[in-house]
Design a protein around this nucleic acid. Structure first.
Length: 476
RNA sequence: CGGGGCGUAGCGCAGCUUGGUAGCGCGCCUGCUUUGGGAGCAGGAUGUCGUAGGUUCGAAUCCUAUCGCCCCGACCA
Protein backbone atom coordinates (compact mmCIF):
# COMPACT_ATOMS: atom_id res chain seq x y z
CA UNK A 1 0.00 0.00 0.00
CA UNK A 2 2.80 2.41 0.78
CA UNK A 3 4.25 1.86 -2.64
CA UNK A 4 0.90 2.45 -4.29
CA UNK A 5 0.71 5.78 -2.54
CA UNK A 6 4.12 6.64 -3.87
CA UNK A 7 2.97 6.02 -7.40
CA UNK A 8 -0.57 7.32 -7.35
CA UNK A 9 -1.36 10.61 -5.66
CA UNK A 10 -4.28 10.04 -3.25
CA UNK A 11 -7.60 11.06 -4.75
CA UNK A 12 -8.47 13.19 -1.76
CA UNK A 13 -5.28 15.23 -1.65
CA UNK A 14 -5.09 16.31 -5.31
CA UNK A 15 -7.79 15.04 -7.63
CA UNK A 16 -6.19 16.38 -10.81
CA UNK A 17 -2.85 14.81 -10.06
CA UNK A 18 -4.58 11.58 -9.05
CA UNK A 19 -6.37 11.54 -12.40
CA UNK A 20 -3.18 12.06 -14.37
CA UNK A 21 -1.34 9.42 -12.33
CA UNK A 22 -4.08 6.87 -12.84
CA UNK A 23 -4.35 7.21 -16.60
CA UNK A 24 -0.60 6.97 -17.03
CA UNK A 25 0.04 4.12 -14.60
CA UNK A 26 -2.89 2.06 -15.78
CA UNK A 27 -1.62 2.19 -19.34
CA UNK A 28 -4.66 3.92 -20.83
CA UNK A 29 -2.95 6.79 -22.62
CA UNK A 30 0.31 8.47 -23.36
CA UNK A 31 0.89 12.11 -24.10
CA UNK A 32 1.56 12.84 -27.76
CA UNK A 33 4.44 15.07 -28.81
CA UNK A 34 2.01 17.94 -29.47
CA UNK A 35 0.25 19.91 -26.79
CA UNK A 36 -3.33 18.86 -26.17
CA UNK A 37 -3.15 15.58 -28.03
CA UNK A 38 -3.05 12.12 -26.53
CA UNK A 39 -2.41 8.60 -27.71
CA UNK A 40 -5.15 6.16 -26.78
CA UNK A 41 -3.25 2.97 -26.04
CA UNK A 42 -4.85 -0.44 -26.66
CA UNK A 43 -6.27 -0.69 -23.16
CA UNK A 44 -8.35 2.48 -23.43
CA UNK A 45 -9.18 1.96 -27.10
CA UNK A 46 -10.71 -1.39 -26.22
CA UNK A 47 -12.99 0.36 -23.75
CA UNK A 48 -13.97 2.78 -26.50
CA UNK A 49 -14.77 -0.19 -28.73
CA UNK A 50 -17.17 -1.58 -26.12
CA UNK A 51 -18.88 1.79 -25.87
CA UNK A 52 -19.06 1.94 -29.66
CA UNK A 53 -20.56 -1.53 -29.90
CA UNK A 54 -23.34 -0.69 -27.47
CA UNK A 55 -24.14 2.69 -28.98
CA UNK A 56 -23.91 1.49 -32.54
CA UNK A 57 -26.20 -1.48 -31.96
CA UNK A 58 -28.86 0.79 -30.48
CA UNK A 59 -28.52 3.36 -33.26
CA UNK A 60 -29.11 0.64 -35.82
CA UNK A 61 -32.02 -0.83 -33.88
CA UNK A 62 -33.66 2.58 -34.06
CA UNK A 63 -33.23 2.81 -37.83
CA UNK A 64 -29.99 4.72 -38.20
CA UNK A 65 -27.24 3.98 -40.69
CA UNK A 66 -23.57 4.86 -40.54
CA UNK A 67 -21.89 7.03 -43.18
CA UNK A 68 -18.75 9.12 -43.37
CA UNK A 69 -18.29 12.76 -44.31
CA UNK A 70 -15.09 14.70 -45.04
CA UNK A 71 -12.65 15.85 -42.40
CA UNK A 72 -12.32 19.30 -43.97
CA UNK A 73 -15.05 21.89 -44.34
CA UNK A 74 -14.73 24.88 -46.67
CA UNK A 75 -14.97 28.17 -44.81
CA UNK A 76 -18.11 29.39 -46.59
CA UNK A 77 -20.03 26.33 -45.44
CA UNK A 78 -18.89 26.53 -41.85
CA UNK A 79 -19.91 30.19 -41.77
CA UNK A 80 -23.33 29.62 -43.28
CA UNK A 81 -25.23 29.33 -39.98
CA UNK A 82 -24.51 32.53 -38.05
CA UNK A 83 -24.80 31.32 -34.46
CA UNK A 84 -22.92 28.16 -35.28
CA UNK A 85 -19.82 29.86 -36.64
CA UNK A 86 -19.89 32.40 -33.85
CA UNK A 87 -19.88 29.59 -31.31
CA UNK A 88 -17.06 27.65 -32.88
CA UNK A 89 -14.81 30.22 -34.59
CA UNK A 90 -12.51 30.57 -31.60
CA UNK A 91 -11.53 26.91 -31.65
CA UNK A 92 -11.30 25.99 -35.32
CA UNK A 93 -8.02 24.86 -36.90
CA UNK A 94 -7.54 25.84 -40.54
CA UNK A 95 -5.79 24.25 -43.49
CA UNK A 96 -4.43 26.96 -45.75
CA UNK A 97 -1.84 25.15 -47.86
CA UNK A 98 -2.15 22.24 -50.24
CA UNK A 99 1.36 21.00 -50.84
CA UNK A 100 3.25 24.18 -51.69
CA UNK A 101 0.21 26.05 -53.00
CA UNK A 102 -1.86 28.53 -51.07
CA UNK A 103 -5.49 27.34 -51.15
CA UNK A 104 -8.06 29.70 -52.74
CA UNK A 105 -10.37 29.14 -49.76
CA UNK A 106 -9.17 27.94 -46.41
CA UNK A 107 -10.57 24.67 -45.07
CA UNK A 108 -11.63 24.08 -41.48
CA UNK A 109 -10.75 20.85 -39.77
CA UNK A 110 -14.23 19.86 -38.59
CA UNK A 111 -15.08 20.84 -35.02
CA UNK A 112 -18.44 19.12 -35.67
CA UNK A 113 -20.16 18.28 -38.96
CA UNK A 114 -23.60 19.91 -39.03
CA UNK A 115 -22.54 22.25 -41.82
CA UNK A 116 -20.99 19.87 -44.30
CA UNK A 117 -23.63 17.25 -43.64
CA UNK A 118 -26.35 19.88 -43.99
CA UNK A 119 -24.93 20.91 -47.35
CA UNK A 120 -25.04 17.31 -48.54
CA UNK A 121 -28.53 16.71 -47.17
CA UNK A 122 -29.77 19.71 -49.15
CA UNK A 123 -28.80 17.84 -52.29
CA UNK A 124 -30.23 14.50 -51.21
CA UNK A 125 -33.63 15.61 -49.97
CA UNK A 126 -36.37 16.66 -52.38
CA UNK A 127 -39.56 14.96 -51.28
CA UNK A 128 -41.29 14.03 -48.06
CA UNK A 129 -40.69 10.49 -49.30
CA UNK A 130 -36.95 11.06 -48.72
CA UNK A 131 -37.58 11.61 -45.01
CA UNK A 132 -36.58 10.90 -42.39
CA UNK A 133 -32.83 10.83 -43.00
CA UNK A 134 -31.22 9.01 -40.08
CA UNK A 135 -27.43 8.98 -40.33
CA UNK A 136 -24.63 8.63 -37.82
CA UNK A 137 -20.90 8.89 -38.29
CA UNK A 138 -18.00 7.69 -36.16
CA UNK A 139 -15.25 10.22 -36.57
CA UNK A 140 -12.56 12.39 -35.09
CA UNK A 141 -13.01 16.12 -34.63
CA UNK A 142 -10.67 18.94 -33.71
CA UNK A 143 -11.29 21.80 -31.34
CA UNK A 144 -8.42 24.10 -30.50
CA UNK A 145 -9.06 24.24 -26.78
CA UNK A 146 -6.98 26.47 -24.57
CA UNK A 147 -6.86 24.03 -21.71
CA UNK A 148 -6.81 20.28 -22.14
CA UNK A 149 -7.01 17.15 -20.05
CA UNK A 150 -6.80 13.56 -21.31
CA UNK A 151 -10.20 12.16 -22.33
CA UNK A 152 -12.09 15.08 -20.80
CA UNK A 153 -10.94 17.73 -23.22
CA UNK A 154 -8.33 17.05 -25.84
CA UNK A 155 -7.69 18.99 -29.02
CA UNK A 156 -8.61 16.00 -31.16
CA UNK A 157 -11.17 13.51 -29.93
CA UNK A 158 -13.13 10.55 -31.19
CA UNK A 159 -16.89 10.59 -31.13
CA UNK A 160 -20.02 9.72 -32.96
CA UNK A 161 -22.30 12.39 -34.31
CA UNK A 162 -25.82 11.62 -35.49
CA UNK A 163 -27.51 13.96 -37.93
CA UNK A 164 -31.14 13.53 -38.82
CA UNK A 165 -33.80 15.33 -40.87
CA UNK A 166 -37.52 15.00 -40.27
CA UNK A 167 -40.76 16.10 -41.82
CA UNK A 168 -42.19 17.63 -38.65
CA UNK A 169 -40.97 19.35 -35.53
CA UNK A 170 -42.60 16.73 -33.33
CA UNK A 171 -40.81 13.95 -35.12
CA UNK A 172 -37.43 15.68 -34.84
CA UNK A 173 -37.97 16.37 -31.16
CA UNK A 174 -38.97 12.76 -30.55
CA UNK A 175 -35.77 11.67 -32.28
CA UNK A 176 -33.72 14.05 -30.11
CA UNK A 177 -35.18 12.62 -26.93
CA UNK A 178 -34.99 9.04 -28.12
CA UNK A 179 -31.25 9.37 -28.70
CA UNK A 180 -30.77 10.97 -25.29
CA UNK A 181 -32.44 7.91 -23.80
CA UNK A 182 -30.05 5.62 -25.70
CA UNK A 183 -27.14 7.53 -24.21
CA UNK A 184 -28.64 7.27 -20.74
CA UNK A 185 -29.06 3.54 -21.11
CA UNK A 186 -25.49 2.89 -22.25
CA UNK A 187 -23.93 5.28 -19.73
CA UNK A 188 -25.89 3.96 -16.77
CA UNK A 189 -26.12 0.27 -17.66
CA UNK A 190 -22.66 -0.21 -19.15
CA UNK A 191 -20.46 2.53 -17.71
CA UNK A 192 -22.31 2.36 -14.37
CA UNK A 193 -22.35 6.15 -14.27
CA UNK A 194 -25.61 7.66 -13.01
CA UNK A 195 -26.73 10.72 -14.94
CA UNK A 196 -29.31 13.46 -14.67
CA UNK A 197 -31.20 14.27 -17.85
CA UNK A 198 -32.46 17.71 -18.67
CA UNK A 199 -32.46 20.61 -21.07
CA UNK A 200 -29.71 23.22 -21.29
CA UNK A 201 -30.36 26.85 -20.46
CA UNK A 202 -29.96 29.27 -23.37
CA UNK A 203 -26.47 30.26 -22.31
CA UNK A 204 -25.22 26.67 -22.34
CA UNK A 205 -26.95 25.63 -25.54
CA UNK A 206 -25.15 24.19 -28.59
CA UNK A 207 -24.32 26.91 -31.12
CA UNK A 208 -27.26 26.97 -33.53
CA UNK A 209 -29.64 24.70 -31.60
CA UNK A 210 -33.20 25.47 -30.54
CA UNK A 211 -32.76 23.22 -27.54
CA UNK A 212 -29.90 21.11 -26.22
CA UNK A 213 -30.67 18.09 -24.07
CA UNK A 214 -27.94 16.73 -21.86
CA UNK A 215 -26.90 14.04 -19.44
CA UNK A 216 -24.95 15.37 -16.48
CA UNK A 217 -22.79 13.16 -14.28
CA UNK A 218 -21.08 14.00 -11.01
CA UNK A 219 -17.37 13.26 -10.84
CA UNK A 220 -15.44 12.14 -7.78
CA UNK A 221 -14.27 15.68 -7.00
CA UNK A 222 -17.76 17.14 -7.00
CA UNK A 223 -17.56 18.64 -10.46
CA UNK A 224 -20.07 17.91 -13.20
CA UNK A 225 -19.31 16.37 -16.56
CA UNK A 226 -21.58 16.79 -19.56
CA UNK A 227 -21.61 13.20 -20.73
CA UNK A 228 -23.65 13.31 -23.92
CA UNK A 229 -25.83 15.84 -25.69
CA UNK A 230 -28.71 15.68 -28.12
CA UNK A 231 -29.81 18.80 -29.98
CA UNK A 232 -33.15 19.78 -31.43
CA UNK A 233 -32.03 22.12 -34.20
CA UNK A 234 -35.45 23.23 -35.39
CA UNK A 235 -35.15 24.70 -38.87
CA UNK A 236 -32.00 26.75 -38.21
CA UNK A 237 -29.72 24.52 -40.21
CA UNK A 238 -32.25 23.52 -42.84
CA UNK A 239 -32.83 27.20 -43.58
CA UNK A 240 -29.12 27.97 -43.60
CA UNK A 241 -28.37 25.05 -45.92
CA UNK A 242 -31.60 25.02 -47.86
CA UNK A 243 -32.75 21.56 -46.83
CA UNK A 244 -36.23 21.67 -48.40
CA UNK A 245 -38.72 19.05 -49.46
CA UNK A 246 -41.99 19.03 -51.32
CA UNK A 247 -44.61 17.83 -48.88
CA UNK A 248 -47.65 15.68 -49.56
CA UNK A 249 -49.78 18.82 -49.73
CA UNK A 250 -47.67 20.22 -52.57
CA UNK A 251 -45.93 22.83 -50.46
CA UNK A 252 -42.17 23.31 -50.31
CA UNK A 253 -41.11 23.05 -46.65
CA UNK A 254 -37.92 23.17 -44.61
CA UNK A 255 -36.88 20.02 -42.82
CA UNK A 256 -36.56 19.74 -39.04
CA UNK A 257 -33.18 18.51 -37.94
CA UNK A 258 -31.46 17.00 -34.93
CA UNK A 259 -27.90 16.18 -34.04
CA UNK A 260 -26.49 14.22 -31.11
CA UNK A 261 -23.06 13.20 -29.95
CA UNK A 262 -21.03 11.29 -27.43
CA UNK A 263 -17.28 11.01 -27.24
CA UNK A 264 -14.22 9.38 -25.72
CA UNK A 265 -14.87 11.80 -22.86
CA UNK A 266 -17.04 9.01 -21.48
CA UNK A 267 -13.89 7.09 -20.62
CA UNK A 268 -12.82 10.06 -18.50
CA UNK A 269 -16.15 9.84 -16.69
CA UNK A 270 -15.58 6.17 -15.90
CA UNK A 271 -12.17 6.96 -14.44
CA UNK A 272 -13.30 9.93 -12.37
CA UNK A 273 -16.50 8.30 -11.09
CA UNK A 274 -15.21 4.84 -10.17
CA UNK A 275 -11.47 5.17 -9.63
CA UNK A 276 -9.92 5.03 -6.17
CA UNK A 277 -6.51 5.39 -4.55
CA UNK A 278 -5.39 2.07 -5.97
CA UNK A 279 -6.21 3.13 -9.52
CA UNK A 280 -8.97 2.31 -11.96
CA UNK A 281 -12.10 0.38 -11.18
CA UNK A 282 -13.68 -0.69 -14.43
CA UNK A 283 -17.30 -1.78 -14.71
CA UNK A 284 -17.23 -5.43 -15.88
CA UNK A 285 -19.30 -4.75 -18.98
CA UNK A 286 -16.63 -2.50 -20.47
CA UNK A 287 -13.53 -4.03 -18.88
CA UNK A 288 -11.09 -5.34 -21.52
CA UNK A 289 -10.05 -7.94 -18.95
CA UNK A 290 -12.82 -8.99 -16.58
CA UNK A 291 -10.96 -11.67 -14.67
CA UNK A 292 -7.25 -12.09 -14.14
CA UNK A 293 -5.85 -15.37 -12.86
CA UNK A 294 -2.76 -15.09 -10.67
CA UNK A 295 -0.99 -18.39 -10.02
CA UNK A 296 0.97 -18.62 -6.78
CA UNK A 297 3.65 -21.18 -6.27
CA UNK A 298 7.32 -21.64 -5.63
CA UNK A 299 9.91 -23.96 -7.03
CA UNK A 300 8.64 -27.32 -8.14
CA UNK A 301 5.07 -26.42 -7.24
CA UNK A 302 5.03 -23.61 -9.72
CA UNK A 303 4.77 -25.75 -12.81
CA UNK A 304 1.79 -27.66 -11.51
CA UNK A 305 0.04 -24.49 -10.38
CA UNK A 306 0.52 -22.75 -13.73
CA UNK A 307 -0.69 -25.83 -15.61
CA UNK A 308 -3.74 -25.89 -13.41
CA UNK A 309 -4.28 -22.15 -13.91
CA UNK A 310 -4.32 -22.74 -17.65
CA UNK A 311 -7.14 -25.21 -17.19
CA UNK A 312 -9.05 -22.62 -15.19
CA UNK A 313 -8.44 -20.09 -17.95
CA UNK A 314 -9.92 -22.48 -20.50
CA UNK A 315 -12.86 -23.18 -18.24
CA UNK A 316 -13.57 -19.47 -17.77
CA UNK A 317 -12.99 -18.20 -21.29
CA UNK A 318 -16.51 -19.12 -22.48
CA UNK A 319 -18.12 -17.03 -19.74
CA UNK A 320 -15.87 -13.98 -19.44
CA UNK A 321 -12.86 -12.11 -20.77
CA UNK A 322 -10.14 -13.82 -18.78
CA UNK A 323 -6.37 -13.45 -18.70
CA UNK A 324 -3.79 -15.65 -17.06
CA UNK A 325 -0.84 -13.74 -15.66
CA UNK A 326 1.89 -16.39 -15.79
CA UNK A 327 4.78 -13.94 -15.77
CA UNK A 328 7.43 -15.42 -13.52
CA UNK A 329 9.45 -12.26 -13.11
CA UNK A 330 6.88 -10.74 -10.75
CA UNK A 331 5.69 -11.83 -7.34
CA UNK A 332 1.99 -12.34 -6.64
CA UNK A 333 1.91 -9.19 -4.53
CA UNK A 334 3.19 -7.15 -7.42
CA UNK A 335 0.60 -8.61 -9.75
CA UNK A 336 -2.23 -7.96 -7.30
CA UNK A 337 -1.35 -4.29 -7.21
CA UNK A 338 -0.70 -4.13 -10.92
CA UNK A 339 -4.11 -5.47 -11.93
CA UNK A 340 -5.87 -3.46 -9.30
CA UNK A 341 -4.28 -0.36 -10.78
CA UNK A 342 -5.65 -1.40 -14.16
CA UNK A 343 -9.11 -1.81 -12.72
CA UNK A 344 -9.72 -5.50 -13.48
CA UNK A 345 -13.01 -6.34 -11.68
CA UNK A 346 -12.15 -9.83 -10.43
CA UNK A 347 -8.94 -11.64 -9.55
CA UNK A 348 -8.71 -15.38 -9.21
CA UNK A 349 -5.84 -16.59 -7.03
CA UNK A 350 -4.75 -20.20 -7.29
CA UNK A 351 -1.97 -21.66 -5.19
CA UNK A 352 -0.91 -24.99 -3.66
CA UNK A 353 -3.23 -24.55 -0.69
CA UNK A 354 -6.20 -23.96 -2.98
CA UNK A 355 -5.30 -26.84 -5.24
CA UNK A 356 -5.23 -29.19 -2.28
CA UNK A 357 -8.75 -28.10 -1.37
CA UNK A 358 -9.92 -27.94 -4.99
CA UNK A 359 -10.92 -24.33 -4.63
CA UNK A 360 -9.88 -20.87 -5.76
CA UNK A 361 -9.81 -17.49 -4.07
CA UNK A 362 -11.71 -14.73 -5.84
CA UNK A 363 -11.00 -11.08 -4.96
CA UNK A 364 -13.32 -8.24 -5.92
CA UNK A 365 -11.87 -4.94 -7.07
CA UNK A 366 -14.90 -2.92 -6.01
CA UNK A 367 -15.09 -4.03 -2.36
CA UNK A 368 -11.65 -5.69 -1.86
CA UNK A 369 -13.59 -8.69 -0.55
CA UNK A 370 -11.98 -12.14 -0.94
CA UNK A 371 -13.96 -15.35 -1.04
CA UNK A 372 -13.11 -19.02 -1.53
CA UNK A 373 -15.04 -20.86 -4.21
CA UNK A 374 -15.04 -24.60 -5.01
CA UNK A 375 -13.47 -25.11 -8.39
CA UNK A 376 -16.45 -26.77 -9.98
CA UNK A 377 -18.48 -23.62 -9.27
CA UNK A 378 -15.98 -21.12 -10.61
CA UNK A 379 -17.86 -20.33 -13.83
CA UNK A 380 -21.14 -19.70 -12.04
CA UNK A 381 -19.43 -17.71 -9.31
CA UNK A 382 -17.54 -15.49 -11.74
CA UNK A 383 -20.67 -14.78 -13.76
CA UNK A 384 -22.57 -13.85 -10.64
CA UNK A 385 -19.75 -11.75 -9.20
CA UNK A 386 -19.23 -9.80 -12.41
CA UNK A 387 -22.89 -8.92 -12.33
CA UNK A 388 -22.62 -7.90 -8.68
CA UNK A 389 -19.56 -5.73 -9.28
CA UNK A 390 -21.35 -3.98 -12.14
CA UNK A 391 -24.30 -3.20 -9.87
CA UNK A 392 -22.17 -2.28 -6.89
CA UNK A 393 -20.17 0.28 -8.86
CA UNK A 394 -23.39 1.93 -9.99
CA UNK A 395 -24.76 1.79 -6.47
CA UNK A 396 -21.64 3.43 -5.03
CA UNK A 397 -21.66 6.13 -7.68
CA UNK A 398 -25.34 6.84 -7.10
CA UNK A 399 -24.79 6.96 -3.34
CA UNK A 400 -21.91 9.39 -3.79
CA UNK A 401 -24.08 11.57 -5.97
CA UNK A 402 -26.94 11.54 -3.48
CA UNK A 403 -24.55 12.46 -0.69
CA UNK A 404 -23.30 15.38 -2.79
CA UNK A 405 -26.61 16.76 -4.01
CA UNK A 406 -27.97 19.71 -2.07
CA UNK A 407 -31.18 21.69 -2.28
CA UNK A 408 -30.59 25.39 -1.82
CA UNK A 409 -32.69 28.56 -1.69
CA UNK A 410 -29.89 31.05 -2.31
CA UNK A 411 -26.55 30.68 -3.98
CA UNK A 412 -24.56 31.65 -0.91
CA UNK A 413 -25.44 28.22 0.46
CA UNK A 414 -23.18 26.65 -2.13
CA UNK A 415 -20.19 27.82 -0.15
CA UNK A 416 -21.17 25.61 2.79
CA UNK A 417 -20.36 22.60 0.66
CA UNK A 418 -17.28 24.10 -0.90
CA UNK A 419 -19.01 24.50 -4.25
CA UNK A 420 -18.66 20.77 -4.67
CA UNK A 421 -21.57 18.67 -5.83
CA UNK A 422 -24.90 19.14 -7.52
CA UNK A 423 -27.03 21.99 -6.23
CA UNK A 424 -30.75 21.91 -6.87
CA UNK A 425 -32.27 25.33 -6.88
CA UNK A 426 -34.70 27.56 -8.72
CA UNK A 427 -33.69 30.10 -11.30
CA UNK A 428 -35.53 33.07 -12.76
CA UNK A 429 -34.44 32.28 -16.29
CA UNK A 430 -32.36 35.40 -16.89
CA UNK A 431 -28.87 35.12 -18.33
CA UNK A 432 -27.88 38.04 -16.07
CA UNK A 433 -28.41 35.89 -13.00
CA UNK A 434 -26.58 32.95 -14.60
CA UNK A 435 -23.65 35.20 -15.54
CA UNK A 436 -23.56 36.78 -12.09
CA UNK A 437 -23.49 33.38 -10.45
CA UNK A 438 -20.70 32.21 -12.68
CA UNK A 439 -18.47 35.21 -12.12
CA UNK A 440 -19.10 35.16 -8.36
CA UNK A 441 -18.71 31.43 -7.76
CA UNK A 442 -17.66 29.64 -10.94
CA UNK A 443 -20.88 27.64 -10.79
CA UNK A 444 -22.99 27.13 -13.88
CA UNK A 445 -26.41 25.83 -14.75
CA UNK A 446 -25.82 22.27 -15.86
CA UNK A 447 -29.38 21.73 -16.98
CA UNK A 448 -33.03 22.16 -16.14
CA UNK A 449 -33.74 18.55 -15.14
CA UNK A 450 -36.83 16.78 -16.38
CA UNK A 451 -39.60 16.33 -13.79
CA UNK A 452 -37.79 18.39 -11.20
CA UNK A 453 -39.70 19.54 -8.15
CA UNK A 454 -39.31 23.16 -6.99
CA UNK A 455 -37.18 24.03 -3.97
CA UNK A 456 -38.51 27.45 -3.05
CA UNK A 457 -39.97 28.92 -6.24
CA UNK A 458 -37.44 31.73 -5.90
CA UNK A 459 -34.36 32.42 -7.99
CA UNK A 460 -31.29 31.53 -5.95
CA UNK A 461 -29.53 34.58 -7.35
CA UNK A 462 -32.06 37.43 -7.48
CA UNK A 463 -34.82 36.00 -5.30
CA UNK A 464 -37.60 36.62 -7.81
CA UNK A 465 -40.48 34.21 -8.01
CA UNK A 466 -39.92 31.68 -10.76
CA UNK A 467 -40.94 28.35 -12.13
CA UNK A 468 -37.56 27.18 -13.48
CA UNK A 469 -35.92 24.29 -11.63
CA UNK A 470 -32.20 24.10 -12.25
CA UNK A 471 -29.22 21.93 -11.44
CA UNK A 472 -26.05 23.86 -10.66
CA UNK A 473 -22.46 22.67 -10.47
CA UNK A 474 -18.93 23.53 -11.33
CA UNK A 475 -18.38 21.94 -14.73
CA UNK A 476 -15.49 20.31 -16.50
C1' C B 1 -4.37 34.77 -23.43
C1' G B 2 -3.17 35.48 -17.86
C1' G B 3 -0.77 32.97 -13.40
C1' G B 4 2.56 29.06 -11.71
C1' G B 5 6.06 25.06 -12.62
C1' C B 6 9.46 22.14 -15.47
C1' G B 7 12.99 20.60 -19.63
C1' U B 8 19.70 16.24 -17.28
C1' A B 9 19.31 7.89 -19.02
C1' G B 10 12.86 4.61 -20.56
C1' C B 11 10.40 7.03 -15.85
C1' G B 12 11.10 10.15 -11.38
C1' C B 13 14.81 13.40 -9.85
C1' A B 14 19.80 15.50 -7.73
C1' G B 15 23.83 18.37 -9.51
C1' C B 16 23.59 24.80 -11.09
C1' U B 17 24.27 29.24 -5.69
C1' U B 18 30.56 29.06 -5.83
C1' G B 19 32.32 26.66 -13.94
C1' G B 20 36.91 21.68 -13.73
C1' U B 21 35.97 13.88 -16.68
C1' A B 22 27.59 12.97 -15.83
C1' G B 23 25.09 11.24 -10.74
C1' C B 24 20.99 8.74 -7.63
C1' G B 25 16.39 5.77 -7.27
C1' C B 26 13.09 2.89 -10.12
C1' G B 27 12.83 0.38 -14.60
C1' C B 28 15.84 -2.53 -18.33
C1' C B 29 19.63 -6.92 -19.50
C1' U B 30 22.39 -11.54 -17.40
C1' G B 31 22.87 -15.21 -13.49
C1' C B 32 21.43 -17.55 -8.94
C1' U B 33 18.03 -17.70 -5.03
C1' U B 34 12.76 -16.28 -4.49
C1' U B 35 6.86 -16.13 -5.13
C1' G B 36 -0.44 -16.31 -0.45
C1' G B 37 -0.16 -8.18 -0.90
C1' G B 38 4.79 -4.22 -4.80
C1' A B 39 11.45 -10.16 -3.43
C1' G B 40 17.09 -10.54 -2.45
C1' C B 41 22.13 -10.69 -3.95
C1' A B 42 25.89 -10.16 -7.73
C1' G B 43 27.24 -8.32 -12.39
C1' G B 44 25.88 -5.15 -16.74
C1' A B 45 23.84 -1.58 -20.59
C1' U B 46 21.77 3.28 -21.32
C1' G B 47 23.03 10.55 -21.94
C1' U B 48 24.03 15.40 -28.57
C1' C B 49 22.21 17.88 -19.92
C1' G B 50 15.37 21.00 -24.87
C1' U B 51 17.67 24.17 -28.99
C1' A B 52 20.80 28.20 -30.85
C1' G B 53 24.24 31.87 -29.87
C1' G B 54 27.65 34.21 -26.34
C1' U B 55 31.40 34.65 -22.09
C1' U B 56 35.60 31.38 -20.70
C1' C B 57 41.63 27.69 -21.17
C1' G B 58 37.14 24.98 -19.85
C1' A B 59 29.72 25.52 -19.52
C1' A B 60 24.46 20.93 -17.35
C1' U B 61 26.25 25.14 -14.25
C1' C B 62 27.08 32.13 -16.00
C1' C B 63 24.58 35.58 -20.00
C1' U B 64 21.09 36.26 -24.24
C1' A B 65 17.50 34.44 -27.31
C1' U B 66 14.30 30.67 -28.58
C1' C B 67 11.28 26.14 -28.57
C1' G B 68 8.38 22.80 -25.96
C1' C B 69 5.56 20.46 -22.10
C1' C B 70 2.64 20.19 -17.48
C1' C B 71 -0.72 22.40 -13.81
C1' C B 72 -4.32 26.39 -12.44
C1' G B 73 -7.76 30.16 -14.54
C1' A B 74 -10.85 32.51 -18.61
C1' C B 75 -13.25 29.65 -23.15
C1' C B 76 -15.32 24.82 -24.30
C1' A B 77 -18.03 17.89 -25.77
Amino acid sequence: MEKVLKEITPKSSDFSQWYVDVIRKSDLVDYAPMKGFMVMKPYSYRIWEFIQEQMDRRFKETGHQNAYFPLLIPEHLLAQEAEHIEGFSAEVAWVTMGGNEQLPERLAVRPTSETIIGAMYAQWIHSYRDLPVLINQWANVLRWEKSTRPFIRTTEFLWQEGHTVHRTADEALAETLQQLEIYREVIEDYLAVPVIAGVKSAGERFAGAVDTYTLEALMGDGRALQSATSHFLGQHFSKAFDIQFLDEDGELKYGWTSSWGSSTRLIGAVIMVHGDDKGLRLPPKIAPIQVVIVPIGRGAEREAVVAHARELESALSPVCRVKLDARDEFTPGYKFNDWEMRGVPLRVEIGPKDMAKQQVVIARRDTSEKISVPEEQIGVAVTRLLDEVQKELFRQAAAYREAHTFSIVNYQQMEENGYRGFFRGDWCGSEECAAHLKSETGMTIRCLPFNETPVADQCIVCGQTTRYRALFARAY
